[in-house]
Amino acid sequence: MAAVESTTRSPRARRPGADAWEIFRNSPTAMLGLVLILLISVLAIIGPLAYPVDPFEIIWAPMSAPGTTERALLGTDYLGRDILAGLLVGAKATLIVGLTAAALTVIIGLVIGALAGFYLGMIDEILMRVTEFFQVLPPLLFAMVLVTMLSPSLWVVAVSIGVVSWPSTARLTRSEFLRIRNLEYVTASRASGVRQGYIIWQVILPNALPPLIVSATLTIGTAILFEAGLSFLGLSDPNVMSWGLMIGSGREYLLDAWWIVTLPGVMIFLTVLGVSLVGDGLNDAFNPKLRRR
C-alpha cells in the first residue's frame, strides 16, 4: 500500500513551505537581505572574540580618522575609543534588544488579537478599546516615559518597546481570525467538540500565519530602529555599547568627526535593510499572485 502511494504521488505535491522557499530563493533582493542578516549576526557573535578590544577603553588619540592609524582601523571617537570595537560589541545589544522587543510585540499582539477575533462580543469590544487607547499614545514618547520612570536597563528598554508596539500586530491578527473563524474546517472542528483553546492555537492560528510572519519580520526592523532611537536619546543602559548610543554620544562632534556617527548608522541601516528585504521576500513567497507589485 505504501509503495502504491509513493508511486502515484504527483511530483507537484510537496510540503507547503517548499514552493514558498523556491520563490524566496529565486528573488535576488530577498537573498541579499538574508545574506546581510547572516553577515551581521556572524559579526555580532564572533566579532568581539576575533577582535577583543574593549569599546569603552581609550586606546588612541581622540577623533582619529579611519585609516590614519593601525591601532584603530575605523578611527576613534571623541574620547579616543575604538570605533570598530564599538561596532562589533554594539551589534549584540542592538540585536538582542531588537529581537526581544519584537518577540514581545508579536506575543502580546497575537494573544490580544486572537482572543478578540475569536470570541467577539464583549471581549472583542473591550480588547479593541484597549488597543485604540494604546494607538493614541505616540509610541516613542510613551516608551521614553516608561524607560524614564523605570530604569534604563536593556531589559526595561525591550519591554517598553514591546508594550508600545503591539497594537498593529493585534489588529492584523484579529482581522485574520475574523476571516478564518467561519471557514468550514473551523466549523468542522467546533462540531467535533474540541476545546476552544485548541481551535484558537492549533486550527486557526496556523492558517493565519503567513501574513503574521511577514509582519513579525518587519516588527524586528522597527524594534531595532526603536532601540536605536532610545539609545540615541540616551535612554538605554549607558554601560552597554550599542549603535544608537555611539551616534547619540558622538553627535556633538558631527562636523569635526563624521565617522563617529556615520559608521554606526550604516550598520543600523544595513541591518534593518536586510530584515525588510527578507520581509518583502517572504511576502512575495506567501502571496505569489501579488508578486507584480
Partner: peptide, 18 residues
C-alpha cells in the same frame, strides 16, 4: 521606500547636517 524605512530618522538628519 526601502531606504526610507531602513535609515534611522535621526541618522538621516545627522547625515543631512553633514
Amino acid at each position: 521606500s526601502l531606504v526610507g524605512y531602513a535609515a534611522p530618522i535621526f541618522w538621516t538628519g545627522l547625515m543631512l547636517i553633514i
